[in-house]
Design a protein around this nucleic acid. Structure first.
Length: 583
RNA sequence: GUGCCCAUAGCUCAGCUGGAUAGAGCAUCCGCCUUCUAAGCGGACGGUCGAGGGUUCGAAUCCUUCUGGGCACGCCA
């Protein structure tokens, strides 16, 4: 559990007590009071800004208020000292017993340590990947996939009821292009010489589709009109592409709970229903849009269109729902899709998409606000570009020259765990450099390795312990009984303090929808641990195993066990498998 | 032209949504293996947080105006 939270409620209780006794005014709002680990560890274990936040409504000077709160805070369990510092911070030091208790919490909970009930079972829908079913995934898709998947895992850990969803864009012009491209490959499979015109998909991943089309249909479509074969071949090709994509995702360890089809949504009237819903609320009209400023398209001409009043919900202009040929725009079906997600019971929606969809954010948020009467919240995470490098040099990619690198190739080259971890070493909206040379390197330059190494080091001691102490019981149940008061070195306590912050980290990262924070936490924990480890090189008494002192050894093993569990727990959130040994 | 995102050490980036003297890694320099993995650790050097103004006890963080970069801008998805 997040002990900063319970500290916060202790302080609120103190404030209320002082109010009741007349020492402080009634009705002070403690919601802005924070309890955090101080930036500088020498300040103590918990710092609170209570005196500074409450001084104004309490009509006191911050230091005076702090002096009033401090003696009461000193009475809280495990508090050994309270200092007032700086402009009015109250710094609290906790007894070692407190950290020993947290360590036992870790052992007891295992990799479930850090689980939170913050989400209280609220339903969250995370939509991610949603790559068009027109070809294999590229590395950029992979980033969205990892960000979405890790975010979903994180939210689950924080107590939300998460649905992981993929939206298949199987309607519209792009899948028509796919169908035509597949048809050419079908002709090719029948021995015809083909030339792929500009605008169709040239990728050779369609060759196999052409052959399967031949197997399935024989020569049935060879001399047919497009209007006859298009639908059937389209469905066939889309299915083939989705198999391909699902396969790529599986290789990344990404699985979705729900696949939603845009085509189905159009065909079952969902889009029309959504438009009608907005129409009934007076949010739709037919009008003519201003041409875009600055860069007017060549073929621009004013044309009346069916428009959604997005500007009433924070968007810049109203947005079209129908194309000039009368069919729905992508936006129209996406409105229907988000409406559908909302009606299925999620009032918290998260979309992960590529940064090139940035211009789409405002209108979608406007639509969700309108469709849900403001009840649903949509957060859109934009996954920025990934730049592939080889030893600092950009990897040149060209679709035409066939040097395009797919996500699958990257996974096969470095492994899924490396891809997942590296994709989360940056905020989602910052560009990411992915250097093949770096990520395969087994050194501290490579964060994946650095964290895995810490985990592996723990296990190497367990193996050593089994060799040196015959019949030693390394089970959690046994280690839980260790006398932890042997652990008094500053580095040991530093590691314990750091682990105790994990639940708070999970909650903060989940609240902000920022899975990359987990990566940084793990890196820092690994760093604390490596530091402790190395102290043993200079000071033999700090090593973990001591043949002449089984009690001390047991306590140290308990600490190691906890470290390995917290690292494993964090890696699980990232979808990365903790390794016990590095080759 | 308009909107969104970004700007932090020489380089690559964090900075816990307003807290204390702004932190890591790389690079450079100096140290540490008779060892449970040195695949590591410790230290030094390095900053007008792009610029100006504002909000308050307090700003890298919030507001505003600039400067410089990325993305997007009806009938693509």
């Amino acid at each position: 559990m997040n002990f900063f939270k319970s500290f916060h409620s202790e302080i609120s209780a103190i404030v209320n007590t002082l109010s009741a006794s007349g020492d402080l005014p009634e009705g002070l709002d403690t919601s802005r009071v924070t309890c955090e680990p101080p930036r500088d560890a020498s300040h103590g274990d918990v710092a609170t800004n209570a005196a500074m936040v409450l001084c104004k409504p309490a009509k006191m000077k911050p230091r005076d208020l702090a002096d009033k709160l401090a003696p009461k805070i000193a009475e809280i369990d495990h508090v050994v000292s309270v200092d007032v510092a700086g402009p009015g911070f109250i710094n609290v030091k906790l007894a070692n017993d407190f950290w020993y208790a947290r360590l036992k919490d870790v052992l007891k909970a295992g990799t479930n340590w850090g689980d939170s009930d913050m989400g209280a079972g609220q339903s969250v829908n995370v939509e991610y990947v949603s790559a068009n079913p027109t070809g294999p995934m590229h590395v950029g898709h992979g980033r969205g996939a990892v960000v979405g998947d890790a975010l979903a895992l994180l939210l689950s850990k924080a107590g939300y009821d998460v649905t992981k969803e993929y939206y298949i864009n199987d309607a519209g012009a792009q899948v028509d292009v796919l169908a035509r491209s597949a048809y050419l490959r079908y002709l090719e499979a029948h021995g015809q010489a083909i030339e792929i015109p500009e605008g169709l998909y040239p990728g050779d991943y369609l060759v196999g589709v052409g052959e399967k089309l031949k197997e399935t249909y024989g020569d049935k479509w060879l001399n047919a009109e497009e209007s006859d074969y298009l639908e059937e071949i389209k469905t066939f090709a889309i299915n083939a592409m989705m198999d391909l994509i699902r396969d790529d995702l599986a290789a990344l360890g990404v699985t979705h709970d729900v696949f939603s089809s845009e085509k189905a949504l159009v065909e079952n009237g969902g889009v029309d229903a959504a438009i009608k819903y907005l129409e009934d609320r007076g949010l739709i009209y037919t009008g003519v849009l201003e041409p875009p400023k600055g860069k007017t398209p060549e073929d621009w001409e004013p044309r009346p269109q069916l428009l959604f009043k997005a500007s009433e919900f924070g968007d810049d202009v109203d947005r079209p729902l129908k194309k000039s040929d009368g069919s729905g725009t992508y936006f129209a079906s996406d409105i229907a899709y988000h409406f559908d997600k909302f009606k299925r019971g999620s009032d918290q929606l998260i979309d992960v998409m590529g940064a090139d969809h940035g211009g789409y954010v405002k209108r979608m948020k406007a639509a969700v606000k309108a469709m849900s009467d403001g009840k649903a919240d949509l957060d859109i995470k934009l996954a920025q570009m990934v730049n592939l490098l080889e030893n600092g040099e950009p990897v040149k990619m060209s679709k035409r020259a066939g040097t395009f690198i797919t996500l699958r190739e990257v996974i096969d080259k470095v492994g899924k765990d490396v891809v997942r971890f590296i994709m989360l070493t940056r905020k989602n909206d910052a560009q990411l450099e992915f250097d093949f040379a770096k990520v395969k390197e087994q050194s501290k330059d490579n964060p994946v390795f650095y964290v895995q190494y810490a985990h592996a080091r723990c296990h190497s001691v367990f193996r050593k312990a089994e060799e040196e102490f015959e019949g030693i019981d390394l089970s959690v149940e046994n280690l839980m009984n260790a006398d932890l008061s042997h652990l008094t070195d500053e580095s040991e306590l530093a590691v314990m303090r750091f682990m105790a912050e994990w639940p708070r980290m999970v909650e903060a990262a989940a609240k902000e929808h920022e899975p990359h924070r987990i990566t940084y936490f793990l890196y820092d924990l690994a760093s604390e641990f490596h530091s402790l480890w190395n102290k043993g090189t200079g000071d033999v008494s700090l090593r973990f195993l001591h043949a002449d002192n089984p009690d001390l050894t047991k306590a140290r093993l308990a600490l190691l066990k906890a470290v390995s569990l917290v690292i494993a727990s964090g890696l699980l959130v990232l979808g990365v498998e903790p390794v016990k040994e590095l080759r």
